[in-house]
Amino acid sequence: MSTYLPREVRDDLDAARMAKLRKRNRLRVLVGGEAWPVLRLWRSGFAVEAERVPALRGLVDVYDGSQHLYQCLIVASEEEGGEMRYEFKRNTAAHDSPPLDHARDPDTPIALLPR
């Protein structure tokens, strides 16, 4: 049995794999006002399509749809199989409100009502 695949077949398989990753993923990375689709995200980094996305560097924001997930400092890792992989140097979870400097009393009123 031969394990050799013609170049055209390998290219078509890679294109089908990339199309599947693009279609099912809502993740995107925002850099300088431009958003690029993220193919895969793991604990220590993410991958984008090497041909469509320019070289990324520095501080980026990762979104899932419209939800801001992380603010990350990234560095390029490697390119393989049409993917450019980036590793996190710093990965900070995004919050919708600033952190509190003190513990809130659970019985504190939320707002004051006018008379």
Rank of each mutant, 00 (worst) to 15 (best):
R57S: 11
P114T: 08
V31C: 08
H102A: 06
Y63M: 10
K20H: 07
P98N: 12
E78Q: 12
L113V: 09
R57Y: 10
L73Q: 05
G33S: 11
H68P: 14
C72Q: 02
L73G: 02
R52T: 12
P114M: 07
M18L: 15
L56F: 01
K20T: 11
S2I: 15
E51L: 03
E49Q: 10
R24Y: 05
E51V: 06
G45E: 08
L41I: 03
R43S: 09
L27I: 05
D107N: 08
D101V: 01
H102S: 12
K89H: 12
G32E: 14
L73M: 13
E51W: 02
A93T: 15
E87A: 07
V29Y: 03
L56N: 03
V9L: 13
Y4N: 13
G81E: 07
H102E: 01
R28A: 02
L59C: 10
R26A: 03
M18R: 00
G32F: 06
P6L: 08
T3D: 15
D96Q: 15
G65K: 06
N91P: 06
D96G: 13
G45A: 02
E87D: 13
K23A: 13
K23S: 14
A111S: 14
F88V: 03
M84D: 00
V29W: 03
I74C: 00
L73K: 10
E78V: 08
A76L: 12
E49K: 06
E8S: 14
A15M: 04
G58D: 06
V9M: 08
R115H: 12
S2L: 15
Y4G: 09
P54I: 04
Q67P: 08
A76C: 09
L27Q: 05
R26K: 13
H95E: 06
E80Y: 02
I110T: 15
L41C: 04
A50M: 07
V29R: 00
V31F: 04
E51T: 04
L113F: 12
P106V: 05
T3I: 12
E49R: 13
A35W: 07
A111E: 05
L27P: 06
D11F: 09
F46T: 00
K89M: 12
D105A: 15
V29T: 02
P106E: 14
V53D: 01
Q67D: 11
L113Q: 11
S77E: 04
W42Y: 11
L13P: 01
A111N: 08
V53F: 13
S97M: 10
E8V: 14
R85H: 09
D101F: 05
N91Y: 00
G82F: 01
V9R: 07
T108H: 07
L56Y: 00
R24P: 03
L112F: 09
A19P: 04
D14A: 00
G82T: 05
A35S: 09
N91G: 05
P106H: 06
V38N: 02
A50F: 09
R7A: 07
D12C: 12
D107R: 14
R40I: 00
L113N: 06
N25E: 12
A15H: 04
P109A: 02
R26T: 04
R85C: 03
Y4D: 11
E34T: 10
I74Q: 00
L5N: 14
R57E: 12
V60C: 04
M18D: 07
P54H: 04
